[in-house]
Design a binder for these strands. Structure first.
Ligand SMILES: NC(=O)c1ccc[n+]([C@@H]2O[C@H](COP(=O)([O-])OP(=O)(O)OC[C@H]3O[C@@H](n4cnc5c(N)ncnc54)[C@H](O)[C@@H]3O)[C@@H](O)[C@H]2O)c1
Ligand SMILES: NC(=O)c1ccc[n+]([C@@H]2O[C@H](COP(=O)([O-])OP(=O)(O)OC[C@H]3O[C@@H](n4cnc5c(N)ncnc54)[C@H](O)[C@@H]3O)[C@@H](O)[C@H]2O)c1
Lengths: 211, 211
DNA sequence: CCCTCTATGTGATTTAATTCACTTTAATAA
DNA sequence: TTATTAAAGTGAATTAAATCACATAGAGGG
């Protein structure tokens, strides 16, 4: 196990591999080759081996990868051998849909607190038991609930200010759904989710491929 | 204007530029240099010029880019100088949140039809006036409503079958929210949105950066 | 115990994307 | 009209990522 800098794309692919491996495990498969896994994930087999090689040797030559072990190893690499507490900021349309969604908990992500600025929403209890706090209580509640990650689902105009508050509260991971470019210090990692960019990409392809 | 193959990343950045340019235009700015725009978008100035150079010359040397013109040009490049009709497949938690969201129409994306398989939902009318059709009527309704893009918001287990039906119906652009790897023919362009991959990436960074 | 077979792990190679650094051109002021 | 200047446009250089191709090592059979 050497220590070169690891492409971000490789990290993202590890998530994809896990998803495929978990599906295979459910079907009762015990062992898989990089070739078959690659096919399922739509990537090159050497890519999978390289991606894994950044972190160690997890396969058996001549045989392949033991699925159960590989899932465990990848989860450890990604830091998924634990749970992560998430705060939802902005319990509107999207925020409440996300909280209601059951898939996150399966991957170890727990919605542990929710915040809004709308007086009508503060104090309300969500289906999953969470009470909506006022955004000004962010720092206090983040401490109490040991929040690790903040999800921004406010209007774009509030995104930067919310990000600032999260960082002051000591939250260093942000998932941002608002269509805004937020500025954060080095220590904080931001991932943006912007559906319209994806739609734009589809529009481009449809336009150019003559449809 | 030459014709090299254009990096997909460049296309995605064009969307980012548009977003920034529209914000600047609202603030009354008329002209901007690649340097200032780059700063706002968090990229390298040469990157912006290269990205644009794939498609032509849109700036004025020594001056910069006229914002109004550049927005129009980029929209034309991406195929956003028109509207696109979208079908929502799966009107659950996420699907209905997306339909309710007003931001898509602003960018020229119109939800023109909705489908589900749940008998309780078929025939219901959504807040925006759409009636939910049965998934088996997909092909017929796609023709009637001139649907260009399909959004898959069904459970993962149904994603591939829905994709197949979309393709048979002649829909060549798919935005897939289900955490499933769907297989499509060459002619069809798929974009996946998977929030848990983004969360995994945040988890990785938090784990490695010692938080 | 050795031989064969198969799929991993990896250095070398290729391909792609980004950034640099210089050239060109339009605007403006003298 | 001409000099000055600022920023676009672009070929060259660099950096990064993906792929190839083969040496290597474990499994299993004879
Ligand atoms: N709903 C979607 O399908 C969708 C799709 C793509 C992007 N988005 C983006 O996600 C964000 C949320 O969308 P939405 O549809 O849920 O909007 P929404 O208006 O339904 O909800 C926003 C919520 O944020 C709260 N809020 C506003 N300022 C706040 C602050 N400073 N602190 C805490 N809470 C605050 C509001 O009170 C409201 O409850 C928007 O930026 C939107 O562009 C949404
Ligand atoms: N809700 C979220 O925040 C969220 C987040 C990430 C990913 N996702 C993914 O998005 C998808 C939808 O999530 P959701 O929370 O809206 O689920 P949901 O169960 O609320 O809605 C799914 C809908 O799809 C319909 N459906 C099922 N099979 C169908 C078929 N063959 N044709 C047409 N409709 C069909 C169901 O009747 C239901 O109305 C899931 O794949 C989920 O993993 C959702």
């Amino acid at each position: 196990m050497k220590f070169p800098k690891i492409p971000m794309a490789a990290i993202n692919r590890l998530s994809i591999y896990i998803r495929a491996l978990e599906e295979l495990e459910e079907q009762g498969t015990k062992v898989i080759s990089s070739e078959r896994l690659a096919k399922q994930c739509g990537v090159n087999p050497a890519q999978i081996r390289k991606d894994l090689a950044y972190f160690g040797e997890f396969g058996v030559r001549g045989v392949g990868y033991r699925i159960e072990d590989l899932i465990r190893e990848i989860k450890e690499i990604l830091g998924l051998d634990r749970t992560w507490n998430i705060a939802m900021i902005g319990v509107g349309n999207l925020g409440s849909a996300l909280i209601r969604h059951g898939n996150f908990i399966k991957h170890g992500y727990v919605f542990a607190a929710a915040f809004d600025i709308d007086p009508h929403k503060i104090g309300k209890r969500l289906p999953n038991g969470l009470v909506i706090h006022h955004i000004d209580d962010l720092e206090k509640v983040v401490k109490e609930c040991d929040i690790h990650i903040g999800v921004i689902a406010t209007p774009a105009s509030a995104a930067q200010s919310v990000a600032n508050q999260l960082i002051i509260a000591g939250v260093n991971g942000i998932l941002n759904f608002a269509p805004a470019q937020i500025q954060v210090p080095e220590c904080c990692h931001v991932e943006n989710v912007d559906f319209t960019i994806k739609l734009d990409s589809i529009a481009y392809h449809l336009s150019t491929s003559g449809t």
